[in-house]
Design a binder for these strands. Structure first.
Length: 418
DNA sequence: TCTGGGGTCCTGCCTCGT
DNA sequence: TCTGACGAGGCAGGACCC
């Protein structure tokens, strides 16, 4: 296993025992912040908060300098600034993060074809079949760290283990800029003392449910009965945790992933009561969803909407369509229909539209759509809303409006939105 | 203090057809 | 013809992940 390198990092030594390992979990360190530093080196060493500076935005990522003040991802920006008043707020540049992500993933794929990206900044690699080419898993992990640093200019942390779950936990412990190798025979000793909250899939609720029954560590999970775990977190999660606690994880590295749903949602700068405006917003979101479906050549069989009220109560409504579609108008009408059935009239802070039950276009659907007609209708609805209210929120809605990949000033990419 | 946006998965309840 | 059991699928809500 690993040890500190004298600079507070966890780095397994050269020649660490990696017997029985084959999975690497590579996680970029404070990725968004690191990309911003890459593009503007004057930011290096500063506490950075990646997030929109105004409205109701939350922290997307923070540099380690900001994390020292307690700043964490998903924290409201206003709260982060109270903790670290000297932090520099940098608005996110998601397209740039995708670009750098492709560079990093290309390095992984030059090592092994078995790469499973989990998000823009992390991936699992199965290196079992490329040991002759590159060396042992621990050696490959070291090569990856060096190449990412040399070719992209950023640091990453790597966990090396026999299973995905342990590799992921190891990389988390190794952060930042570290590497931790857990030999297969060390797996149970590695897991035993760790808190249940460190397990993948255990969030605040599940952790509380387990801890209230005296189950605090992974060893405790291993020693708990199936019935006890079932009562605490339900049969599915209970069985999974028991398996992971025994060091078993049957999941392979999957290179193919099929999207199961596509959606868009938006939180307003201020809560909205006006139903017509909200209906227009649903239409706009539906149009963006439809555009993405068409680009991917998918159709949707089920539409769902999400509504969040000012008190944060959230509800969803869904409807299976008589025929699958990728037409913005049909998706929008379904979304509006679902919205109209909601009786509660309190101010609303968020609306969302999601397409589920996806299938390839033309596989029995109606297969007709017209971007221009969709767009004219959305534009008309937004125009109506602007004429009636003229608020900043509506102006923003107009700018975000066209999601079909055409247009110029109204093109979403002109505003950094995909 | 005041909580984004994009997703996946699970659970419980209900309806419907057999 | 009525009734109950059962499975499948739709729907709503929530936890979790990055």
């Amino acid at each position: 296993m690993g040890h500190g390198d004298g600079r507070g990092r966890v780095v397994s030594p050269e020649g660490a025992d990696d017997t029985g390992t084959r999975i690497l979990h590579v996680d970029m360190d404070a990725f968004y912040a690191a990309v911003e530093v890459l593009d503007d080196p004057t930011l290096r060493g500063l506490p950075l908060i990646i997030g929109a500076p105004d409205g109701r935005s939350v922290v997307s990522s923070a540099s380690y300098e900001a994390r020292r003040y307690g700043v964490r991802a998903a924290m409201p920006v206003s709260q982060a600034l109270r903790l670290c008043p000297t932090a520099r707020i940098v608005p996110p540049h998601f397209h740039r993060y995708q670009e750098v992500s492709r560079q990093v993933m290309a390095i992984f794929e030059s090592i092994t074809p078995l790469v499973e990206p989990l998000s823009v900044d992390e991936a699992f690699l199965d290196v079992q079949g490329v040991r002759r080419l590159w060396g042992s898993p621990a050696r490959i992990a070291q090569i990856i760290r060096e190449r990412v640093q040399a070719e992209v200019g950023m640091s990453c942390s790597v966990g090396v283990a026999a299973t995905k779950h342990v590799a992921k936990m190891a990389s988390t412990i190794a952060k930042p800029d570290g590497m931790l190798v857990v030999a297969a025979s060390d797996t149970l000793d590695f897991l035993a003392p760790r808190p249940v909250r460190a397990m993948w899939g255990v969030g605040p609720k599940a952790a509380e449910a387990l801890e209230s029954r005296g189950i605090r560590t992974i060893r405790d999970i291993r020693e708990s009965s199936a019935e006890m775990l079932d009562r605490a977190v339900g049969p599915a999660l209970g069985a999974r945790l028991a398996q992971l606690a025994r060091g078993e994880d049957p999941r392979h590295v999957e290179t193919e992933r099929v999207e199961k749903s596509v959606g868009h949602e938006e939180t307003f700068d201020h809560d909205i009561v006006d139903r017509e405006f909200l209906r227009a917003e649903l239409l706009r979101l539906a149009d963006r969803v439809a555009a993405r479906l068409r680009r991917a050549q998918w159709e949707t069989g089920t539409i769902s909407i999400k509504i969040r009220f000012d008190d944060f109560r959230t509800l969803s409504r869904s409807q299976t369509l008589p025929e699958p579609t990728a037409v913005g108008q049909r998706i929008g009408e379904a979304a509006q229909g679902l919205f109209d059935q909601i009786e509660r009239r309190d101010p609303i802070r968020l609306v969302g539209v999601r397409a589920e039950n996806l299938r390839p276009a033309g596989a029995g659907g109606i297969g007709l759509w017209d971007d221009d007609e969709d767009w004219r209708r959305v534009e008309g609805a937004v125009d109506d809303a602007v004429a009636r209210f003229g608020s900043a929120t509506i102006t923003r809605a107009r700018h975000l409006g066209r999601g079909d990949g055409r247009g110029s000033a109204l093109h979403p990419k002109a505003h950094g939105i995909d």
